[in-house]
Amino acid sequence: MKFPSEWTQKEFLQNKKVLEAEGIKVLLIDTILSPIEKTDTVVYNPYELNKEPRGSVFVFYCDSGKSTLNRLEEYKKRFPLYNCISLKGGRGYWRINMSVFDE
């Protein structure tokens, strides 16, 4: 799978389901110390993130998605063994009750 620079919440939820079924870990990374309700997030900690399995997907979020998109190249350099993506719209556009179903 080729990874874009950004995923919407819907793309995140759909791709997470598909990738985890293939054995690829997908993590939602909190860069602002503000977890999103009703979903699993991991606080940005480079030391701990480097312990994740190679090939994992890191989806970084901030309040609006702009800061993480601007820093995406920095994240890619810091985590060359992982796939780094920014969450489009960030925490502000996250819909707590959104879910995806198999078609």
Rank of each mutant, 00 (worst) to 15 (best):
S64T: 03
N50W: 07
F60Y: 15
G90P: 06
Q14T: 11
D63M: 12
E22A: 02
T31K: 12
G23N: 04
F101G: 06
R54G: 04
I29S: 08
P35C: 01
R95E: 13
F101P: 01
K10N: 12
L13D: 05
F60C: 09
I36L: 15
K51H: 13
K16P: 02
V43E: 13
D30L: 10
V100G: 03
S67I: 08
L49H: 07
N15C: 00
C84L: 01
P46A: 07
Y47C: 08
K88G: 03
S86K: 03
G92M: 06
I96S: 05
P53G: 08
F12E: 03
E48M: 15
R71I: 03
P4R: 00
G89T: 03
V43K: 13
L49N: 07
S56L: 13
K38D: 10
S86G: 14
R71D: 14
K16D: 00
Y61R: 07
K17F: 03
K17S: 08
K38V: 02
L13A: 05
T8K: 01
P80W: 04
R71W: 14
C84M: 02
V100H: 04
S56F: 12
D102G: 08
W94Q: 00
M98W: 07
S99C: 02
F101D: 12
D63S: 14
D30N: 15
S56A: 15
K17H: 08
F3C: 07
F60K: 06
L33E: 14
S67R: 10
V42K: 15
F58N: 02
P35Q: 04
G92A: 09
V42I: 15
E74M: 12
G65I: 02
P53S: 07
K25P: 01
W94Y: 11
S86Y: 11
E11K: 05
G55W: 05
Q9G: 06
P80G: 06
G89Y: 05
S34M: 14
E103F: 10
P80K: 03
R95W: 03
D40H: 13
D102I: 09
Y61A: 06
K77F: 10
N83W: 12
F58W: 05
N50D: 15
V26L: 10
L27M: 15
V26R: 06
D63P: 01
P80F: 06
Y82H: 14
G55L: 04
Y82S: 09
K25G: 13
V26G: 06
T8R: 01
F101Y: 12
V18L: 14
